[in-house]
Design a protein around this nucleic acid. Structure first.
Lengths: 119, 119
DNA sequence: CGAACCTTGACACAACTGTGTCAGGGTTCG
DNA sequence: CGAACCCTGACACAGTTGTGTCAAGGTTCG
């Protein structure tokens, strides 16, 4: 009984009904349905919609960004390869002389081992 | 001496010169410049461009996704809030009775503590 | 010097994201 | 029953991403 229809949910979350349908299609907040197909937003969905709004506005990101973040957390391969690519960028503190390249890699591995051993 | 111009780099990486400039503008691979302003792609940039191509094609993602992943790794607040939002979705193994909500939270915290203690 | 390459800037276009609005047709409830 | 609401589908439009291409002007090098 504590489930709101789409217009009511829109009212209390700040989204428009149109956008609630869109958010659903993107797969971020999928409300239950009544027997006749009406969307039913429960307390959990309402809260998620509110925090989602804050998240998007707070960092100026889009629904597709959040969707991608979810892929990152769910697909291990994607996360691994993306991290690896970004890591290659971060690990070069700006133009290491070519000859130091190998040593740099080795030191990185040693740092990793040390970090693990320290736990 | 081992730096390629934009057309040569395009040739060996599979990108078009146009796209190399675009990738640069997005901020993912920024080559050095010669005195007269020509882009100079060294071995490191060439490798990054090749792996970037594989990454995008392999998971059907875009440059903006990789750029967002970088924001995630660099902005702690963004990462924290995004993770928190996604976590809320994951932690509900499908319709927990309303009364179990609090217990669920507590168990999550205990799981976290247990995981830390186990190291 | 002149061909071949580089630079930036702009026009163009498809596809996707984000929103609004309207149409045709079912549902709810006083 | 009828007003008020819901549903899906579609037309529209602005902004972003991804690419190509062309123009005007500098650089390189045989």
């Amino acid at each position: 009984m504590d489930a709101l229809t789409i217009h009511e949910a829109a009212e209390t979350t700040g989204w428009s009904p149109r956008m609630l349908r869109y958010v659903e299609r993107v797969g971020l907040v999928e409300p239950a349905r009544s027997a006749s197909g009406y969307r039913l937003y429960g307390p959990a969905e309402l809260q998620r919609l509110r925090t989602l709004r804050e998240l998007l506005a707070g960092y100026d990101i889009g629904l597709s960004d959040v969707a991608f973040a979810r892929r990152l957390r769910e697909e291990a391969g994607l996360r691994r390869d993306t991290e690896a690519w970004l890591e290659a960028e971060a690990e070069r503190p700006d133009e290491v002389p070519a000859a130091d390249w190998l040593r740099f890699e080795q030191e990185k591995h040693q740092r990793l081992l040390a970090a693990v051993a320290a736990t």
